[in-house]
Design a protein around this nucleic acid. Structure first.
Lengths: 246, 246
DNA sequence: ATCTGTGAAGCCGTTCACAGCG
DNA sequence: CGCTGTGAACGGCTTCACAGAT
């Protein structure tokens, strides 16, 4: 509680809306692409198109960070890249551990997008003795028994959980107890964590089910739509069981 | 436009809110877990806890499907499973093709969550000649040249794009031209598609960046927070370049 | 008495449209 | 004159609180 801290917060009064935070990485990627093409300046209209949003939204989003554009001109690409990177915390390194080295964990370990954005994978852990010691993407798999030691010793702050569903909550409890405050969960379970710990979830099955919903709706015709069969109050509850299993 | 179609739509007037659709798969999973434990009836409070939402939201969500609960009692698990499955379109099968059989595509091909929910993988395609013919999760990889033939011949309606970023848009254009209307994209690019085609995106790097943002905020102290350095108007634009590269 | 279903209120995010700066 | 930054209007989602069914 430094009593007289210089609170230079020109804009960005306090707290950027969550929806905006979720889009900043998209803008950042679009900006990097422009940068590679040697583009120095970009208008909100152009950048919005590259990011797949409309320009009003983009301008509103950027306005939460500050006034980084020039009226009548646009945004300087390099400068905006820096400002967004800084706001997202990408100017510092984040140490990541991946727990679970199945197919998915392996894919994550080899994913280039990690290193390129300041995320350093400092550990690959698994419970399977047969995997321990194997090299994956230039890194030896370590035994999950050493989880606490690895997390705290290497200052891991983000854990990626890629274990089977049954193991996920226990692993989560352990990484949190060891000091992790951010979790990216690929296991198909709802994780419970104490306040102050952030969890984000990636679930392939859920994404597919959402697509299926819209697909079904489209198939029902461009105008009307009603779910197949089962209209009025079903009297008994029997024949629908195999429908879902079949 | 059948003039006098029997529009039995007791509730669910038209269109379930998108936010609700995104949560139905979560409820469904929680219900399946309860079902395995032999639970027959569940209250909104219990189910909400299992799904990680509050009970008011759960009840409102379910109310969009119809009145499937019993006041004073709760919801019958089996019945609710069926109703949600039907609403999501999971009582029919969906044919999926996975394009790109790198680490990630392999992980997806082996993912059990596909088959268990009515998603049938009918094709694994890749451009790499060395991969073509290899068996992955009991399925032979086919050459991407045959994409159109496979998509339309096998009635694929959902394409999963797991190619490198550079190839994604072209692949997307081809699958859409071949008749696909739902795309699940793992490549770190914004895909352009015609109206009527749904795209959902899964991006590991974005998820990590969102976590980093909150992590940075937490590190700044539980009370105040300001981005590191760079307070007032920066006069020139020079020294921030290596900061983001370093 | 209990727990669902839902109007009503409040909050958040998006879009509009334009003032104002360069 | 062009384009950003932003108040204001709008729409959707969440939360509250309770009426009403069992």
């Amino acid at each position: 509680m430094t009593p007289r801290q210089n609170r230079t917060r020109d804009r960005a009064e306090r707290g950027i809306p969550e929806a905006t935070v979720a889009r900043l990485p998209v803008y950042l990627r679009a900006l990097h692409t422009l940068q590679e093409r040697g583009v120095a300046t970009v208008s909100s209209e152009e950048l919005a198109a590259a990011a797949g949003v409309n320009s009003a939204k983009l301008r509103k989003d950027l306005s939460h960070l500050g006034s980084y554009g020039t009226r009548g001109v646009g945004y300087e690409v390099e400068y905006l890249v820096y400002q967004i990177s800084r706001e997202l915390g990408l100017t510092q390194d984040w140490v990541v551990a991946i727990i679970g080295v199945g197919n998915l964990g392996r894919a994550l370990a080899g994913y280039g997008g990690f290193a390129s954005r300041g995320f350093r994978v400092a550990g690959l852990l698994d419970a399977d003795e047969a995997l321990v010691g194997q090299e994956i993407s230039g890194m030896a798999v370590e035994h999950i028994d050493r989880l606490e030691e690895i997390i705290s010793g290497r200052r891991v702050s983000i854990a990626v959980i890629a274990t089977p569903a049954g193991a996920a909550q226990k692993v989560c409890d352990r990484v949190v107890a060891a000091g992790v405050t951010s979790v990216l969960n690929f296991a198909p379970v709802v994780l419970s964590v104490p306040d102050g710990v952030d969890v984000r979830k990636v679930d392939l099955s859920i994404e597919l089910q959402i697509l299926a919903f819209h697909e079904q709706r489209k198939a029902g015709g461009p105008d009307g739509y009603a779910p197949p069969a089962s209209g009025e109050d079903p009297p008994g509850a029997a024949q629908y069981v195999e429908a879902v299993e079949a």
